[in-house]
């Protein structure tokens, strides 16, 4: 299978009052058609910035791309003029964000917003009429499970519940039939019961369209349930990546192991849950070499040099000196 998205050695600096923070420190990630990638990591590890970078939505300044390429279907997104980018967005790359209450424009009927996205996506291929776009919008709403879809096109966002709004946003992200969907914590702001529904919906849409997905989350449970692959991020690096079965069943990086050890299960006795000591490094002055070393139980002299990512088995890559041996 050919690669749909290839991120190679992506370095991103973010200007702040105290200097430039080195927030993405050489990201390598390849997503092929049909793969569902979970990108996990704690707050501030750079997972959202990685997702936004794919559509080049990170504002520059304050951000600055220092090195690397992002190839979407072989074309470098970082080198594209704005007009080319717009053809990509919505039509080839769909995006869903965290909070459905703030991601729909409150002053416009959802039909209006859906139709405009559909028209924008069709603008670069076969043009469609507004009426046709409206039909398409109604069909999409119906697909994402909104009852009486056609009549609800004329409703405003505040007339929908949080879960329903996320369904509308999913319909909006998919109306241009993108080949890659980037979902940035799409269920974090929802009730647990609604989370399950939205995840099931996403899964169904992926199965139906065969699109590739980059699901950004901090919930390993979501990854285990819905993804085929996973990339674990820590402080601007992908420390481990591979098939979900490989990474979750046999984690090789100490950070992945620590993350998994911190998940409560039925068999863990009260008080036996292991947290991770220390806190994420200051990205204005990150530790040299491996950024996880200060918190790592296995840290050694060799960690002072940034460990290269090595393949430990087919498709399973780990960036740790432990795996080098």
């Amino acid at each position: 299978m050919t690669a749909l998205l290839e991120i190679e050695g992506l370095h991103l600096g973010m200007q702040s009052f105290d200097g430039e923070a080195h927030v993405l420190n050489g990201i390598d990630l390849t997503i092929r058609r049909g793969e569902v990638w979970g990108v996990v990591g704690e707050t501030g590890c750079g997972k959202s910035l990685t997702g936004l970078s794919v559509s080049r939505l990170v504002p520059t300044p304050p951000a600055r791309y220092r090195a690397g390429r992002i190839l979407f279907e072989g074309q470098d997104v970082l080198a594209m003029p704005e007009g080319e980018l717009r053809k990509l967005r919505g039509r080839h790359i769909g995006m869903i964000f965290q909070d459905p209450t703030t991601n729909l424009n409150p002053s416009f009927r959802i039909g209006d917003q859906l139709v405009d996205v559909a028209l924008a996506a069709a603008r670069h291929s076969e043009r469609i009429t507004r009426a046709a776009a409206r039909d398409l919008a109604a069909r999409m709403l119906d697909k994402v499970g909104i009852p009486n879809a056609a009549s609800r096109l004329d409703d405003y966002p505040h007339q929908f519940s949080g879960g329903m709004r996320q369904r509308v946003l999913i319909a909006m992200a998919l109306i241009g039939r993108p080949s890659l969907l980037i979902a940035d914590e799409p269920t974090t702001a929802l009730d647990v019961s609604v989370q399950a529904q939205v995840l099931a919906l996403l899964k169904g849409m992926v199965a139906e369209t065969g699109m590739a997905v980059m699901l950004i989350t901090h919930n390993l449970g979501v990854v285990a349930q819905s993804c085929t692959h996973v990339a674990v991020m820590y402080a601007g690096n992908i420390v481990e990546s591979g098939r979900v079965a490989q990474v979750i069943r046999a984690p090789r990086h100490p950070y992945t192991q620590a993350l998994l050890a911190a998940i409560p299960t039925r068999h863990v006795a009260r008080g036996a849950l292991q947290g991770l000591a220390g806190s994420v490094p200051d990205l204005l002055a990150p530790p040299p070499g491996c950024r996880f070393a200060p918190r790592c139980a296995h840290a050694r002299a060799a960690c002072a040099v940034l460990p290269a990512s090595v393949t430990v088995e087919e498709g399973h890559r780990v960036a740790c000196v432990l795996a080098h041996a």
Partner: peptide
């Protein structure tokens, strides 16, 4: 600065459509 403007950009709406239709109505209010 609103989230929905990012969504509108992320889904490929043109700059002028976002500004003159979607942003201006909220700002005029």
């Amino acid at each position: 600065q609103q989230d929905y403007v990012l969504t509108e950009r992320a889904l490929g709406l043109s700059r002028s459509l976002i500004l003159f239709k979607y942003v201006s109505r909220n700002a005029v209010a």
